[in-house]
Write a protein that binds this DNA or RNA. Structure first.
Length: 334
DNA sequence: GGGCCATGAGCAT
DNA sequence: TGCTCCTGGCCCG
């Protein structure tokens, strides 16, 4: 259940763990067996994210040690995690980059947690020779195995091999991605302002802005003081630009820390007055330092329905919007 | 063991 | 607007 920041972290992780070397690609579950066979044994040369889409680029077949491979010459694995998809990583402990993001992880797409330091892991650390991964757990659509690490994909909404032209077609259709340096904010501003569709719905439309999900949607609208139901045409362009700029900061923070935190410091620390969130509902991506901002102080409105608004005390509301829960404060957002 | 839930999106109607 | 797909964790009994 990732939003864009998680997908960008994933792309970076794939580049770090597997980039520049051949990988074994299999489909333990079998449903992706033909695609896996196409990529098996090839060199991973690109790893990139656009919104919630991840693309892994593989060099053409044949020996190309250390050679640069243009995107146009690559074949791509396109993965979209959807609601349930997740990547599980494990390594032999020798890969520095793994530790740079905390530790080998499991279920990065859903809940980014550190692997427990099991005796098995420690034993593996001391072993010389090829990394022998554990047997896949659950319905593993794709397993990517490198010399020192393994990644297992379960439950994706999309997992397919595409040409570079097909990758470009997907990317071109997407709206600008606030995390990417090459994003054009004006595309978002103009398009959102042109449509009478509620801004709360437009933010969830990946053709309008790529990478925003249900949390960033709700939180960014709260921070902007915007009623989610206001038509795009009724939101001034300057406000849309400010909304974009805010999302750039929030989402890039998310890439950096592996967590979504949208509350400002002055609005935290009031959990006892305003009520606690249900601990079951606040699971989110973490990056090994969950106490920097406690989990129940990370959001203004997301999953806080019925609790007092951190700013004005009005009970936070929730309603169904196009099949998704939409959280907002009716007083602060008008 | 059953039911419910989820940070998503394509497609039919 | 509603259905469908994808999967697993957690609560409840």
């Amino acid at each position: 259940m990732p939003e864009g920041h998680t997908v960008h972290r994933l792309a970076r992780t794939f580049g770090d763990l597997f980039g520049g070397a051949p990988v074994a690609v299999t489909s333990p579950q079998g449903r992706f067996a033909p695609g896996a066979a196409l990529l098996d044994g090839r060199v991973l040369v690109h790893a990139q994210a656009f919104g919630k889409q991840m693309f892994l680029g593989f060099a053409p077949r044949g020996p190309m040690p250390g050679e640069r491979v243009a995107e146009a010459e690559s074949d791509w694995l396109r993965v979209h995690l959807g609601l349930y998809g997740s990547w599980t990583f494990a390594g032999d402990g020798s890969v520095a980059v793994v530790h740079a993001i905390g530790a080998p992880r499991r279920r990065v797409g859903e809940t980014e947690t550190s692997l427990p330091d099991t005796p098995d892991d420690e034993a593996q650390d001391d072993v010389d020779g090829p990394f022998v991964p554990a047997a896949p757990r659950g319905q593993v659509r794709v397993r990517i195995l490198g010399e020192h690490a393994v990644a297992d994909l379960t439950g994706p909404t999309a997992c397919e091999v595409v040409t570079d032209a097909e990758r470009l077609a997907v990317v071109t259709r997407l709206g600008p991605d606030p995390i990417r340096d090459d994003a054009d904010p004006q595309r978002f501003v103009d398009r959102a302002h042109r449509s009478r569709t509620a801004i709360g719905l437009q933010l969830m439309n990946q053709d309008v802005i790529a990478g925003v999900g249900n949390i960033y949607r709700a939180e960014a609208l709260f921070r902007a003081g915007l009623d989610p139901s206001r038509p795009g045409t009724a939101v001034p362009k300057e406000t849309l630009r400010a909304l974009w700029d805010d999302l750039v900061g929030l989402m890039r923070d998310g890439v950096r820390t592996g967590r979504i935190v949208t509350t400002r410091p002055e609005h935290r620390g009031r959990g006892h007055e305003l009520g606690h969130m249900d601990a079951r509902r606040v699971r989110q991506n973490t990056d090994g330092d969950p106490n920097v901002v406690s989990r129940d102080e990370s959001f203004y409105v997301y999953h806080r329905d019925g609790l007092a608004c951190r700013v004005c005390g009005t009970p936070v509301q929730v309603r169904d919007a196009a099949g998704r829960n939409l959280f907002w404060c009716p007083t602060c957002q008008s």
